[in-house]
Simulated assay, not measured.
Amino acid sequence: MANATVCMSEELYQILETLEKPEVRHSLQRLLEKLPNVEQTIESAENVVDFGKSVLTDDKTVDRYEQFVATYNVGSETITAIVQLMEKLPKLVQIIHQLENIIDFVTVVLQDKQTTDYTMNNLKSYADPYVEKGKTGLDFLKMVQQRAEEKPQHINVFSIVKWMKDPSVQKSLNYVQSALDILKEKN
């Protein structure tokens, strides 16, 4: 028993020695000052836990929750999809930020009359030659159609032989023959 008393007095001595340190005394003082707040926090947590227990034991509430969950298709596939979506959210947010920057840029550009005029003039300068070629081609087709309807001609073998001498017909037939040769080689 004397041995136990010596051990206890050594432990008590060590505790008193620790309590004599200024930082320990300061910490204990702050802890004692905050004890009422700690007690309120613990009581609040106990109230939340009690409320949770009450809700989980209330059959009416549990039935309503089960009906609510049953109306949605919340299975393992849905939960897996939600987790995968959550994993991809940082990348999606990054893409959305980039899209917002692009939209802001386009909005500013479209609101700037000088920039839109410059862009439209450049596009027009690139497109005009193609539009002109298209118009020329359409005019040519209209002229061919009009002449064919106004002056119908009787075509015979002699007319075709006469056409064969025309250099433009020869050139066109040369293109047709080359295309046929290339198709034959590919097959």
Rank of each mutant, 00 (worst) to 15 (best):
V93Y: 04
D117F: 03
E23T: 13
L32R: 14
V49R: 14
V83D: 06
K60W: 12
K21T: 11
I15L: 12
T71F: 00
V106E: 07
V83G: 05
V38H: 07
I103Y: 00
V55D: 00
A81E: 06
E17P: 07
Q84K: 15
E11Y: 08
K88D: 06
P36S: 03
E39S: 03
E87A: 04
Q98R: 13
I95G: 12
Q40R: 11
L19K: 13
N47I: 04
L89P: 05
G75V: 01
K34N: 11
Y13F: 10
K88S: 11
S27G: 13
T116D: 07
E11L: 09
E17N: 12
G52M: 12
K21H: 13
T78D: 08
V24L: 04
T78S: 11
E87N: 06
V106M: 04
V24F: 10
K21D: 03
D50S: 07
E33I: 07
I79Q: 13
L99D: 04
L12S: 07
I96G: 10
E20R: 11
P22V: 09
Q114V: 05
F68N: 01
K53F: 12
R30T: 01
A45Q: 13
Q114E: 14
K91G: 10
E100P: 05
T18W: 08
L16E: 13
N47S: 11
Y65V: 00
F51T: 06
Q67T: 03
E46F: 00
Q14E: 04
T116H: 02
A45K: 11
P22R: 09
L89G: 02
I103H: 05
Q98S: 11
N73F: 01
K113M: 12
V6G: 00
L31D: 08
L56S: 09
Q67N: 14
I15M: 06
L56F: 09
N73G: 10
L12H: 03
Q40A: 08
Q94A: 13
E39P: 09
L28W: 01
Q40F: 01
G52R: 01
C7I: 10
I96W: 02
S27M: 11
Q67C: 02
T61F: 05
M86L: 15
Q111Y: 00
E100H: 09
Q114D: 14
K88L: 02
D112T: 10
F68Q: 01
V62D: 00
T61A: 14
Y72A: 05
R30A: 00
L89D: 03
V48A: 08
L35H: 12
E43K: 15
E87V: 10
F68V: 04
Q94N: 14
V6I: 07
G52Q: 07
S44F: 07
I79M: 12
I79S: 04
Q67A: 07
S9H: 01
I15W: 01
I42T: 10
V49N: 08
L99C: 00
D58Q: 14
